[in-house]
Write a protein that binds this DNA or RNA. Sequence first.
DNA 1: AGGCTCGTTTGATCGGGATCAAATCCGGTC
DNA 2: GACCGGATTTGATCCCGATCAAACGAGCCT
Lengths: 240, 240
Amino acid sequence: MTPPLTCTAICADCAVRDRALCGSLDDRELRALNALGQRRRVAAGQAVAWAGDEAILCGNILSGTLKLVAGPADGREQIVGLLYPADFFGQPFGGQTDFTIVALSDAELCVFPRAGFERVLDDHPRMERLLLERTAASLREARRQMLVLARQSAAEKVAGFLLDMAARAGDGGCCAVPGGPLTFDLPLTRGQIADVLGMTIETVSRQLTRLKNAGTIALPGPRAVTIRDAAALAARAEAA
Amino acid sequence: MTPPLTCTAICADCAVRDRALCGSLDDRELRALNALGQRRRVAAGQAVAWAGDEAILCGNILSGTLKLVAGPADGREQIVGLLYPADFFGQPFGGQTDFTIVALSDAELCVFPRAGFERVLDDHPRMERLLLERTAASLREARRQMLVLARQSAAEKVAGFLLDMAARAGDGGCCAVPGGPLTFDLPLTRGQIADVLGMTIETVSRQLTRLKNAGTIALPGPRAVTIRDAAALAARAEAA
DNA sequence: AGGCTCGTTTGATCGGGATCAAATCCGGTC
DNA sequence: GACCGGATTTGATCCCGATCAAACGAGCCT
C-alpha cells in the first residue's frame, strides 16, 4: 500500500534481536525475514492497528511502549495488554484485528506483511514454536489479570501494578539491592494506569497518595516512582 | 503413575474427533495418539489439575463442562475459562499448571502425558498450527472478558452471559427460529455464574429476577432458562 | 510574562453492588 | 410422608469506588 516509510530492516543492528522471536533463526534464515521487514516509527498517540480492520501486519516492538485496547463506542475503554520492546504483535492466521493498538510513547517497530510472515512460520517450526509459547504466556497473563480486575480492591490493584512495573524496570540489569529503594519512571499516565486496572483516574491518584503518605513509596515527579518499602507494598497487593 | 482408569482411547468412536485438535490428523497419525491417550472419567466437583503442580497431563474434553479457576488463599475465586467438549486443556511446553481445573459436571476426558503429546506436536506441524490458533482464540476471548469484568455493569454482564450460553446451546444444530424463544439448561449454578462474571450470587440472582419480571426471559427451573426476547437481552448487554 | 492545554490532586456526594441475614424451594434419603 | 442439606430468592444495610466539581501544577507557544 504505502511506500516504505523508512529504510529496510537491518537485523544486524537490531536492539532486540536476541530477545525477539527472530532470536530463534540463524543467519541464513534471518535474511528471509530481513527482506520482508521494514522499520517504522510511530509517534505517541498514533494507532498501529484498528480493531475490526483486516489484520495485514504483524511485527516486533523495537522500542517504546504500546497498548492493546478493548472498548467500544462509549467512553469506557480497557487496556487489555501492554507491549514492550521485543514483544510480538499481530495475528498470524487470524482474520481481523481484535484490539486497537496505540503507541503510548514514540516507538519503533519492525513490521512484516502478515502473509509473508506466515510463510516464514510455515518454513521455520522453531519460530512457530516460540510464537506458540509466547501466545500461551500472554494467555496466562491475561487470565491472571482477569482475577485482578474482577476480585481485587483498588488498593491491591495499585500496589500490584507498582510491583509489576518495578520488576520490569528492575530487570534492566540494574542496580540496587533487592528490597532496597528503587526509583523508575512509569511509562503510563494516571489515566492509562486506570485503563489498565479497570478503575478511574481519581481512584488511582488517591491510592498513590495514600501509599505516599504511608511512606511506602515516594513520588518525585508525576511519572517517577520510588519504592521505599517493597515488603509493605507486597503486603498491600495481597491483602484481602 | 496411576494405572489406566479406563480402557485405552479408541479414536474411531470419539464423539469429538472431528472438532478436536486430532481432527487434523489422518488415520496413520491418529494411531500414534491412540497409543498415547487414555479415556478418563471425572465426577462433578473433582479436580483434574491443581495450580502450581507440574504440568504432566493434557488432553481433550469429550463430554461435560470444566472450569479453569484462578484464585488464591481466601474465599475469593475467579473462573477464568470454561472448557467444553472438543476443547483442549493443558500446557504443552509449559512448566507448571497455572490454573486449577475442576469438573463442573461429570465429564469424560481423553488425556495424554505431556511429554508424549509434545513429541506428537514436534512431528505434526499441522496439529501445532491448530493448537496455536486455538491458543490465540483463547487469548482473544480472555481479553474480551477482561473488558466485561472491568467495565460492564451487573445487568450487562448477566445479559451478555445469557446470550453467550444461548449461542452455545443453540449451535447444537437445533431448532427454533433465530430470535424466537429458546430454552436451555445452564451448566452452571448461580454461584459459578457469579465466579465467571466477577460478582456475587445475590447479584446474579437479582439480575435474573429482574429480567424475568421484565418478560425478557423465563426461568422454568433453577437450571433452565428461556430466552423470550433476545433483542431486549442484546440491548441490555450493550447498554451503558 | 501571560495564557493555554493537559495531567494531577483533592474534595464532596452518590449509587451500585457487596455484605449480612433470613425465608423459600427442591431433590434427595430414610 | 417427614426430614435434611444445598441452592436460590428476597430483604435491609453498608461501603467502596464512581461521579461531579474545582483547584493546582507544569510545559509550551505566541
